[in-house]
């Protein structure tokens, strides 16, 4: 009797259970903007296979919880990115992939937004132009670490999801 309980009952905190379930199925949006999107596709395809980490691309923002900003965000496109972010259900995370999404990169021009941080909160920056698929994988692992450390019930990390 004792053994049966020991084998089937597990004590943990609700926070760690929630964060485990959140980080194990990170579904990013199929949302490529520029060159980085090709490396994002490479990361999702056979050789690198992001599915191993529970990362499965979804075509709609309403089904996804990670947005990978993979490419240059222009002024014309920034409201669209913001709208897509707002359409995602909470909790949601943002990965800025590549130099353009991080800081505008070489494109310091009249048409380009100087970094995604200016209009959406970014959780993980993946540097590179474009970053290798391994770098994107590393970004996902970092994001999983971040989610692991967050406490869903304590409320601290939920503040950031409220739109400004």
């Amino acid at each position: 009797m004792n053994n049966a309980i020991r084998d089937s009952v597990l004590f943990t905190t609700a926070d760690s259970l929630i964060s485990w379930s959140r980080r194990s199925a990170l579904w990013p949006e199929t949302f490529g903007i520029a060159c980085c999107a090709i490396e994002m596709i490479s990361a999702g395809c056979a050789r690198y296979d992001l599915d191993r980490f529970g990362v499965v691309f979804r075509p709609s923002p309403r089904q996804s919880d990670v947005m990978i900003i993979a490419g240059t965000i222009t002024r014309k496109f920034a409201p669209v990115v913001r709208r897509l972010y707002d359409q995602m259900p909470e909790p949601r995370w943002v990965i800025a992939m590549g130099t353009c999404a991080i800081s505008g990169g070489v494109y310091n021009t009249y048409a380009v937004v100087q970094g995604a941080e200016t209009f959406v909160p970014v959780d993980v920056h993946v540097p590179g132009c474009p970053p290798r698929p391994e770098a994107l994988m590393h970004g996902f692992l970092l994001l999983q670490e971040k989610i692991k450390k967050s406490r869903a019930l304590a409320g601290a990390s939920l503040d950031r999801v409220a739109a400004p």
């Binding site: 021009t109 009249y110 380009v112 209009f119």
Partner: peptide, 15 residues
């Protein structure tokens, strides 16, 4: 005569 970096605002502080 149009500046390369456009005019300054929140999205582009370098303009």
């Amino acid at each position: 005569d149009f500046p390369l970096r456009g005019y300054k605002d929140k999205l582009n502080p370098f303009g």
